[in-house]
Computed example of a mutant assay.
Amino acid sequence: MATASLRNPGTDLRPEWFEQIRINTPAVERRAATLPVRRSLKKEWQAGWILNAILCIDLTTLAGDDTEDRVARLCAKAMQPIAPDQLAAMGVDSLTTGAVCVYPTMVGAAKRALGNSGVPVASVATGFPAGLMPLDLRLAEIRYAVDQGADEIDIVITRAHVLQGNWTALYDEMRAMREACGPARMKAILATGDLKSLENVAKASHVAMQAGSDYIKTSTGKEGVNATLPVSLVMCRAIRDYQDQTGFKVGFKPAGGLKTSKDAIAWQVLMKEELGDDWTRPDLFRIGASSLLGDLERQISHYVTGRYAASHRLTMA
């Protein structure tokens, strides 16, 4: 069997694996609604899950006014997201976020700022967030980011291929992107809020994995609706089906909409119950949310000190 350390090589396009998928939406919604209340986590158990969520965050800046200084501050926060004295009080030596995510032109700045910390640099590419650029330009953007040193590439798909059921076009596009990524791991952003149905989400997930995606990701964070538990549940079950078919494990990344520690715990519960413990670690699970870190840090401060810190004491990068 494959392990989490092995990349997903993909397969030929096999529509028979997903063409007959039908989703019982009310059943999915009922199952998803139970997740936040299935586990009562208090005190040190809750704090442990919060620390684990921090370990899985892709700390992100994707603003039009990004500068190298802003990226350097973000990288400093990624390398030390929780104050050392608070970590020491919890018996933890060190902690980093799962990665830093930036635009391609900021990859070099991020690599310099992170140095030998071991924190990966992820770059969005392929005309993020809409992806409505000629394919050769999208592939060139991937290659540029990889040349700059990106360890991971978050690509966006052409939503029209999904809405039209043109699975061959979607597969061919993503296969070319996977090749352009070279050694960098590819995260396929499905923009699920644009896909109209859970069946489309499931089918797009299968095509992305067959094309060789290392992770499938819910959203760009720019859609009207981003990560939700029902959508995430459908994608997780697609990952489980793909592993059953191929033996390869594909990661999952919810993005957008996760703002509180309760959200972070709910998605980790989803991972643990639907996919297993391997998907509670950054090799196979990432959270695309930077504002979330502020609340996680606040909860850790409360756990250690017994009181909530003023917001200015928990500054984001």
Rank of each mutant, 00 (worst) to 15 (best):
Q243S: 13
Q243G: 11
D244T: 15
D244L: 14
Q245K: 15
Q245G: 03
Q245M: 14
T246N: 04
T246A: 12
T246Q: 09
G247F: 01
G247L: 09
G247S: 13
F248H: 15
F248Y: 14
F248E: 12
K249M: 13
K249I: 07
K249T: 08
V250S: 09
V250Y: 05
V250C: 03
G251W: 07
G251D: 08
G251I: 11
G251H: 05
G251S: 05
G251Q: 10
F252P: 13
F252H: 07
F252I: 10
F252D: 09
K253G: 10
P254Q: 04
P254M: 07
A255S: 00
A255I: 02
A255K: 02
A255V: 10
G256C: 09
G256I: 02
G256M: 04
G256D: 02
G256L: 06
G256T: 01
G257I: 01
G257F: 00
L258S: 00
L258D: 02
L258F: 01
L258T: 03
K259E: 15
K259L: 14
K259R: 13
K259I: 12
K259G: 10
T260F: 03
T260Y: 04
T260K: 10
S261G: 14
S261Q: 06
S261L: 07
S261H: 14
K262G: 13
K262V: 13
D263H: 14
D263F: 00
D263W: 11
D263I: 05
A264D: 01
A264K: 04
A264R: 05
I265C: 08
I265L: 00
I265N: 00
I265R: 06
I265K: 01
A266T: 01
A266P: 06
A266Q: 04
A266H: 07
W267L: 07
W267N: 05
Q268F: 05
Q268D: 01
Q268P: 07
V269G: 06
V269H: 00
V269F: 05
L270K: 02
L270T: 06
M271V: 01
M271N: 03
M271E: 09
M271W: 00
M271H: 02
K272H: 09
K272G: 08
E273C: 12
E273M: 07
E273T: 12
E273F: 02
E274V: 13
E274S: 06
E274Y: 07
L275P: 01
L275I: 14
G276V: 02
D277M: 09
D277W: 04
D278I: 05
D278G: 13
W279T: 09
W279Y: 15
W279I: 12
T280Q: 12
T280M: 15
